[in-house]
């Protein structure tokens, strides 16, 4: 564990909490892509199946459980409790165009051709593009509530901080994982346009 990794995890946790609080406090999930949230639930489920097979640390296990619970909690709020506020007319990104290539790619490019490893690889690929329905929704409606922007900023920062973590680990521990690094860079690049708007609007806006 290094400071970049810790900050990345905190940022990830913060994003999930911001989203849950936003939905809970406003009793509405307007402006949030249910499709992205479903993809994230698939990502966490596929990746954290190793909860049953390998123990790394209490921190690791607890965080995994928190991410899973928060993700399914968000889906419950969006699709059941506050269903009426779900803006499905604007949430039209075809997620099969993301899922199928990720399935194929994880079967072709992985560290080991075993079920759990392929699921882990699939989750890494899918996570890198899972935000696209949300970004598509924001661009379609032309605006995002500021709280939604904070959510996106925290979520994007998490993988950007992980890149620093991977650079650190490469030099400090000679540890690297090509699949995670490349997918993480792709993921971060997808946020760049949003980061630019968030920062310039934050500084020069209002």
């Amino acid at each position: 564990m290094n400071v970049f990794r810790l900050l990345g995890d905190i940022s990830h946790l913060l994003a999930i909490i911001i989203l849950l609080l936003k939905i809970w406090k406003t009793r509405s999930c307007a402006g949030i892509s249910g499709r992205s949230q479903v993809l994230f639930a698939v990502v966490y489920t596929a990746r954290y199946l190793d909860l049953f097979t390998s123990y790394i640390s209490a921190y690791n296990s607890i965080m995994k459980l928190v991410f899973l619970a928060a993700s399914y909690g968000t889906i419950y709020l969006m699709f059941i409790k506050f269903k009426a506020s779900y803006d499905h007319n604007h949430d039209t990104f075809r997620i099969e165009f993301l899922i199928l290539p990720c399935v194929l790619l994880s079967l072709l490019i992985n560290h080991e051709f075993s079920p759990l490893e392929i699921l882990w690889t699939f989750s890494i690929y899918l996570e890198s593009v899972a935000i696209l329905p949300q970004l598509f929704m924001v661009s379609k409606t032309g605006e995002a509530e500021s709280i939604t922007s904070h959510y996106l900023f925290a979520l994007g920062s998490y993988r950007a901080l992980y890149i620093l973590n991977w650079i650190y680990r490469y030099y400090a521990e000679s540890h690297y994982d090509v699949i995670a690094i490349v997918a993480g860079i792709v993921q971060t690049v997808l946020y760049c346009d949003f980061f630019y708007l968030y920062i310039t609007k934050g500084i020069y806006g209002q």
Binding site: R5, D9, H12, R47, D50, S54, I56, N60, M63, K64, F67, H111, E112, S114, E117, W120, Y162, N165, D177, V178, A180
Partner: peptide, 10 residues
Amino acid sequence: DEPAEEHDEL
């Protein structure tokens, strides 16, 4: 490709 090892990140 390097062999699979435990994924210790989240």
